[in-house]
Write a protein that binds this DNA or RNA. Structure first.
Lengths: 203, 203
DNA sequence: TCCTTAGGTGTACGAAGTACGCTTACGATC
DNA sequence: GATCGTAAGCGTACTTCGTACACCTAAGGA
C-alpha cells in the first residue's frame, strides 16, 4: 500500500564506502553519504536511525564479506587462514579500521566469524575458560594488529622519527625502529600470529 | 616581561580527566574543560594548538604515570609486570581508552615505556626483526585487550546477548559466551598474556 | 611610570547531527 | 480508472562543536 523504498542497505553501504575510500573517515558524514546517493540528507533517516547505525551497516558489510568456510589443515593453520581473511577484508577499506574497532561487537555478521573460530578452537581441544581466553586473545591480537597498522604502521613516519632518536637516550628504541622499517605488514602479521598460536599450542 | 601563564599542563590534564571521569569521553569538549578550569573557552588555545593536542596531553599523562623501573624476575615475569602496570594505569580512567588507542604513538612518554620493554626483550635474547615483532605483538596484545575490555567486556551486555542465542544457530558461541561471564578482566589479561609469553619463549 | 608582550575574552562562523512537519508518489481498493 | 492511506522523501531550522579573529588586560622590566 505505501510507497516502496528506493534504496537497499547495500546501496547505503556502497555509498558510505565510496565516500570513505575516496576522502577518508572524517568525510563520512550524513550529508556526504546522502549526496553520494543523490538524496536529501534527511532521506537517510528513513533507512538508519542515526549515524552510528550507518557505521554499523558498513562494519557488518565488511564482516559479511569474509569467507567462513573452514580451510584445510590442522587447527592452527585453520585459525591462521580465518584471521588472515578478516585482516584482508578490513584492509580492503583501510579507513574503516576505527569503525571496525568500535562496532565489531554490535555487528551481527561477527557472530558467524566467532562461531567459526570457536569450532576450530574446539577441534584443537579447547573448552571452558580456556576456549574463552583463546578466542578473546586471538580477536584481541587481530584488533591490536589493525590498531597498530592503522595508527602506527612500521613503515610510517613514527618509525622514522623513533629511528632518529638519540642513541644515548633511547639506545634500543633507535636501533629497533631502524630494524622495524624492513618488516612489511604481511610478515608482521604472520609472525605475530605465529607467536600467539605457539602459545596456544604449548599446553 | 610578558604576562606569565596561569595554568600548567598538569592543571589542563587534571581538568580534562575530571570531565572525562565524571561525564564520559563524549563530554570532553573544549568548552567543558575551559569551564572546569574557570576560564573562557578560547583561553585554552594559549596552551594547546587544538583539541587533539589536549587529548595528547591526557594520554601522555597516563603513560607518564607508569613506573618503568624494572621489576625482579626472569624476562617473562618482567614483561608481565610492565604490561600490567600499563593496563592498570589506563584502567584508572576507563573512558580514555579510545584516546590511548588513537594517540599512543604521538605521546612522548610512550618512548620510555617502549625502551623499557625492549630492554627486557633484549635480555631475553631477542634482537633484529624478532625483537621488532615481539615488541609489536606485546603492544598489540595490550591494545587489543583494552579494546576488548572497553567496547565488549566479558561481563557486559554483549556477552549476555550471545549466551542467549539459539544453540541451534550458534552452538559453540552460546555455550562459550555463558562460560565467559565467569572470567574476570584480571584473569583474562593474565591468561591472555601468558599465551603470548609462552609463544615468545618457545623458540 | 610606562610600555611591551603575551595572556585572556567575546563574538561569530562553518560544519555536523538530527527533530519536525510538509509534500509527494506509490499501489491497493473500489 | 479514480481515490486515498501510508510511508518515502525533503527543506528548514536548532543545537553543539571546534576554532579564527580582533580586542582588551595585566604583569613586570626599563
Amino acid at each position: 500500500m505505501p510507497r516502496p523504498r528506493s534504496l537497499t542497505d547495500d546501496q547505503l553501504v556502497a555509498a558510505a564506502l565510496a565516500v570513505v575510500d575516496r576522502e577518508g573517515l572524517a568525510a563520512l558524514t550524513m550529508r556526504a553519504v546522502a549526496r553520494e546517493l543523490g538524496v536529501a540528507t534527511m532521506g537517510l533517516y528513513r533507512y538508519v536511525a542515526d549515524r552510528q547505525a550507518l557505521e554499523l551497516l558498513v562494519v557488518d558489510h565488511v564482516f559479511r564479506s569474509v569467507d567462513t568456510s573452514l580451510p584445510d589443515g590442522g587447527w592452527q593453520e585453520r585459525i591462521r587462514v580465518l584471521l588472515d581473511r578478516m585482516r584482508v577484508a578490513v584492509a580492503r577499506h583501510p579507513a574503516v579500521v576505527p569503525l571496525v574497532l568500535r562496532h565489531r561487537q554490535a555487528a551481527p555478521a561477527s557472530l558467524r566469524l566467532i562461531e567459526a573460530m570457536l569450532s576450530v578452537l574446539t577441534e584443537g581441544g579447547l573448552d571452558g575458560a580456556d576456549r574463552v581466553v583463546a578466542q578473546r586473545t586471538l580477536v584481541g591480537h587481530l584488533l591490536g594488529f589493525l590498531q597498530n597498522e592503522h595508527f602506527a604502521p612500521l613503515s610510517g613516519p613514527g618509525t622514522i622519527v623513533m629511528s632518529e632518536l638519540s642513541a644515548a637516550d633511547y639506545p634500543l628504541l633507535a636501533r629497533t625502529a631502524a630494524d622495524a622499517r624492513s618488516v612489511p605488514p604481511d610478515e608482521e602479521f604472520r609472525r605475530g600470529l605465529d607467536i600467539v598460536l605457539r602459545g596456544l599450542s604449548a599446553t
